[in-house]
Amino acid sequence: MATTAGEAGTGPEPASLRLPGIVLGVGLGGFVDGILLHQLLQWHHMLSSTDSDRIGVRYYDPRTVSGLEMNTVWDGLFHTVCWLAVLIGLAILYSRVTRERRRVWTSRVLWGWILAGWGVFNLVEGVLDHQILGIHHVRGGPHQLWWDLGFLVLGALLLAGGYLLARSGRSFDPAGAPA
């Protein structure tokens, strides 16, 4: 069960909020990426750089109807994974929180771990898809490396800031809090 500490920084954060916070952050961070960068700004799609990838995936030019259709399917699969991460994070959180739900939703601990999870998403997605696989970049073109590095820096800042925010919050065990 989770550890309870009275004051900020006097003990470990409740493990019961860490996992659901990180899983929620991964899903929500993915949604920000997918909605903002894929749909609204249209800077990239899941397979928009496969003409120069490192794994040999067939190229689907997003400037053609058939290419955009295939990229949209893969963007949809990406959003499905994000949606599942949010549902799983909420399910884990709900299973662990029996009392004081409002206090949990307003806690620095939970929101810190959500930000940390978003940072984890950026770092994993940025290293795997942008660098290792090369299937897409934040924004293609002559400065794509700088955009990709900025995405990684943002991920590191979210992870560090989220961790610090979680550490600064008042720790409590949401399952054992007084009614």
Rank of each mutant, 00 (worst) to 15 (best):
D61R: 02
Q131G: 01
Q131K: 06
G117C: 14
T72G: 01
G89Q: 07
N122L: 05
H38Y: 14
G117Q: 14
T98A: 14
I92H: 10
Q39G: 12
L47P: 15
S16H: 06
I55G: 11
P20L: 12
I88Q: 04
F121W: 15
G89A: 12
E69L: 03
C82L: 08
R18A: 11
S52K: 07
R63C: 09
G117L: 15
R99L: 06
R99K: 14
G89R: 04
G89I: 09
N71G: 02
W74Q: 00
H79F: 04
G25L: 13
L84I: 10
I132H: 11
V97W: 08
S107N: 07
I22H: 12
L87F: 13
S49Y: 06
G27T: 08
L87T: 02
P14G: 07
I114F: 15
R18H: 01
R99P: 09
A116L: 15
T80I: 03
H45F: 01
T106G: 09
T80N: 01
H45A: 00
G34E: 07
H79E: 00
I55N: 15
I114V: 13
S16F: 09
L87C: 07
G21N: 11
D53Q: 05
G112C: 15
L84G: 05
L19K: 09
L17N: 12
D75M: 01
R102P: 03
N71Y: 03
D53A: 02
S48T: 01
L41M: 10
H38S: 07
D33F: 00
Q131S: 09
C82A: 13
H79R: 00
L84V: 06
H44F: 08
S107I: 02
L24R: 10
G21K: 05
L77E: 01
I22P: 14
V97H: 05
V124G: 11
G89H: 12
S95H: 06
E125N: 15
V73Q: 07
I35M: 04
Y59I: 00
